[in-house]
Design a protein around this nucleic acid. Structure first.
Lengths: 196, 196
DNA sequence: GTCTATACACGGATAGAC
DNA sequence: GTCTATCCGTGTATAGAC
């Protein structure tokens, strides 16, 4: 009876995670995954139904880690503005792009019900967390009353995702850094004016 | 002697433009291009050196059209803020994504010197135009003196590019619309305060 | 200029031995 | 469970006829 350690399975997932990030889904072949994991074809088709199934498992793992890291930025006990700044200004491997966001450039991913769902669900989670932080700030009168949490949350998410796009287009992290700093500056302007 | 009408060549470029937008570079095969253009293999290899060369021509065309449309939004005679709003709020085929920005998701594009250059150059042009508009606004005291044009320009670009990512991830244009509206709201907050 | 035929490697999946 | 052998389709490019 097999021990449920799943080492080979884990290696497959790990290799897939790396390759998906580096090359995307369509451009990642089972062959490449197997080579990197040091496994044969049989292992893959034993543990998973095929490429799509393996990719889904890998993406769920990646999403989990990404959400955990975001949670760290957003869960501090500072003001809402400080927590949003922490999220925006966090160190990132800019030129590699967002391991989840980049999947949206791959038509095959969006055409796969499972894969598309993982991507959509990840951003839904992210959005929910950011909305919550902004609402916190509203409750504490940190922001101007005109601020719409749902809109601002997507703006924040978009600046990060778009920053990756600009940086990769330029082959230089600078556009990302400018974009998030510009966003932080605008956020400061949405603070509640002192009424005295 | 051949007339320089280039009809077949143009059909090839047009088909490539469509397919690059729909599927990206890697996932677009010469075969698919030929089928759509109603041409044979020979035509393609007569007019272009190969897939990369044809894609470069197609991307240059696409970039040109995109820059022209942006110019329309940004060149109005309204205030800088109004022109930025026009750019941000312009009607877009959100779920198709940005025909240029989406290329950054394709590792093969970024790995090709020619292709990567077209993408980089397009965003450089775009950025330059937006910076100019913001500087206009600064000259007219529209914005708070703390505004950094280079940062704000990339923030604006990033919101649009990131909006596409979020919308495609969700399979719904709503996140894009929220992101740009949130950005517009923040832009309003950066206006120069009346000193009276 | 454009076509068809051909070449060769790689993609993804299956079969069956161990 | 994992391996290798095999299959068939497709991707990209070349050859050579018309």
């Amino acid at each position: 009876m097999p021990r449920a350690d799943g080492t080979t399975r884990d290696h497959l997932i790990e290799s897939t995670r790396e390759l998906l990030w580096e090359r995307g889904y369509t451009a990642t072949s089972p062959r490449a995954i197997l080579d990197r994991a040091g496994a044969g074809q049989g292992s893959m088709y034993h543990h998973f139904t095929g490429k799509e199934d393996l990719a889904a498992a890998a993406m769920r793992d990646t999403a989990q880690q990404l959400l955990a890291r975001t949670e760290t930025d957003l869960a501090g006990d500072g003001s809402a503005l400080e927590r949003l700044k922490a999220y925006l200004l966090r160190q990132r491997e800019v030129l590699r792009g967002c391991p989840v966001g980049r999947m949206t450039g791959d038509a095959e991913v969006l055409g796969s019900a499972v894969l598309q769902h993982v991507v959509a669900a990840t951003f839904d989670e992210l959005r929910g967390r950011i909305v919550a932080v902004i609402c916190d700030g509203m409750d504490n009168d940190e922001f101007d009353g005109s601020v719409q949490p749902a809109e601002l949350a997507d703006t924040v998410l978009a600046v990060v995702q778009g920053g990756y796009v600009l940086a990769r287009a330029a082959g230089d992290p600078a556009p990302f850094d400018r974009a998030v700093r510009g966003a932080v500056a605008m956020l400061e302007h949405t603070r509640k004016k002192d009424v005295r």
